[in-house]
Structure formats: C-alpha cells, structure tokens
C-alpha cells in the first residue's frame, strides 16, 4: 500500500499544550518537515522563546535551548560562533521579538547573522492572557486595550518584516500566512528557501508568519482564519521584502566559506 501521509520525523509524539485552532502547531510542523526533507535534523539547533511556544523543544525533535524573553537572537549569535556550520533557527512571538527583544533582533540582522528567525505574529500576547502586542491592530480589543487599541495612545502596529528589510545584513525577508491550505503550502516553500539561504551563509533570514490566537481573540478557529484574512493581511501585506539575487545565490557557498 502506498503511504500518503506520515508522521514527521522532526516532531516528537508529545501532546501539545496549544489551544484548539492555534497555528503554532502548523508553524512547528512546517519547519520540521522542511528540515527533515533537507536531511538537516541532525545538524539543527533551535531556540524557543518565552511565549506560548516556550515548550517548542518538547515537540521539535532537534537540539534546542530556551531563551529569556526576547533574547533568542543574541543566544543564536553565540551558538553560531561555536558551530558555524549548524542549521540554526530562533522561533519567536510578537511580544518576544517585536517588543522586549527588538534590540536583539535588530542587531542580529545588523550583523548579518547566519541563522533564520521564524517570527509568529498573532497580533497579541498569547501566553500571558491576551494583552496588547506591538502588532495589535488599531481598534483591536485586548485585555490591556479593552476599548480597542487607540492610535493616539499606542501608535500604529509595528511592521517588523518591512523594518528588518531595511537592514543590509538581512538578506531574506518574507511575510507568509497560515490562514488556508494554499497559504500553508506557500509558507513551506518560503521556509525551505530561507534554510537554503542560511546554508549558503549569505546573511540573516527572517520570516514573519501571520497566525491566529482564537482563545485570546475570542473567536472560533474558523472565524479567526477569516479575521486574519480580513484584518491582518490588509495591514501586514504578504510577500517578499528582500532576497538574494541569483548571482549571490550561486556564489554564496564561496563567500560563506571565507
């Protein structure tokens, strides 16, 4: 009989603590599938953040460590110095990366660190119970913006992919979404591309993943997907913001080896 679906080697059999409809699980699985397909699981080191995905190392079957809130890019910088040839990623939420850890992410990009950051933007602080994130949309209700986020008091949400793309050391920057099967397939291709670029040691890679948080948004999983499409994508446009040219890709290996 032909196998049409298999458990990914990169994921453990541990039951996850994620809420129903949460997209962290999809993001985990896509990363692990890509690493498995590229035969990189044994060479990979990952860093889990402070946030709902703090236990990512329980689900991902690769060497991993935890980071203090927001510090994963600095930790990755240290790891990459010891193992320059490993495949290395940080996995971070929007509170972790776009608020408390802005310094670390900006400077990892600035140095052109040769690792990949998977940035899960669910427009809210999930783990602590639904407070405003820097990515919370204007008018969006959270437990610390109960009348909706006010532009006057809090400004407009940060567009991290666009910001990171202004930094020379960030060679690959793209925003994807997990709102439908087709966007999930697209996202997986982008993940693979990012890991290929890391292998060529061209510079820093950053993927922003638009995600849902049904529990803290107060919506059903299906309505959450719709809300992501109708509210998040218009403000956080999908697409590539920066990628190496064909020539750089071709000579990447040589440059990286220097």
């Amino acid at each position: 009989m032909k196998t049409v679906f298999e458990f990914t080697k990169g994921m453990t059999r541990e039951e996850s603590i994620y809420c129903p409809g949460c997209t962290h699980g999809i993001a985990h699985r896509l990363i692990m599938e890509v690493l498995d397909e590229m035969d990189l699981l044994g060479e990979t080191i990952g860093i889990s953040p402070v946030g709902c995905s703090i236990l990512a190392h329980r689900y991902m079957s690769v060497d991993m460590c935890e980071a203090a809130h927001g510090r994963a890019p600095a930790i990755a910088t240290g790891i990459k110095r010891v193992h320059p040839d490993c495949t290395l990623f940080t996995y971070q939420g929007d509170g972790d990366l776009a608020s408390i850890g802005t310094g670390e992410i900006i400077h990892a990009a600035h140095r052109g660190e040769k690792f990949t950051t998977f940035f899960v933007n669910n427009a809210i602080y999930g783990m602590t119970g639904g407070q405003m994130a820097p990515t919370t949309l204007v008018g969006q209700k959270t437990t610390t913006t109960q009348e909706g986020r006010s532009e006057l008091l809090c400004g407009k949400p940060l567009r991290m992919a666009e910001m990171i793309a202004t930094i020379e050391g960030a060679v690959f920057v793209e925003r994807v979404s997990l709102d439908s099967p087709s966007s999930i397939f697209k996202a997986k291709k982008v993940f693979r591309k990012a890991i290929e670029i890391q292998q060529k040691k061209l510079g820093f890679g950053f993927i922003e993943i638009l995600s849902t948080c049904p529990t803290n948004w107060g919506l059903s999983p299906i309505d959450s997907m719709e809300w992501l499409r109708t509210h998040m994508i218009p403000y956080f446009p999908l697409g590539n913001f920066r990628k190496p040219g064909d020539r750089e890709m071709a000579c990447g290996q040589e440059m990286g080896a220097k």
Partner: peptide, 25 residues
C-alpha cells in the same frame, strides 16, 4: 572569536548561547 555585542544584555545572552553550544566563554 570576539563579538562586540549591542548591549550587556546581548553579551550575556551570546555567552549563554556559546556556553550551551559547548564553548569556553
């Protein structure tokens, strides 16, 4: 390897990363 960190907060976390990776830091 020497790295000039962007802050002491980053420096100590870089040290943690290198140490976790088995390096003498």
């Amino acid at each position: 390897v020497f790295v000039q960190a962007e802050s002491e907060l980053a420096a100590v976390n870089m040290a943690y990363g290198a140490s976790a990776a088995g390096g003498r830091v």
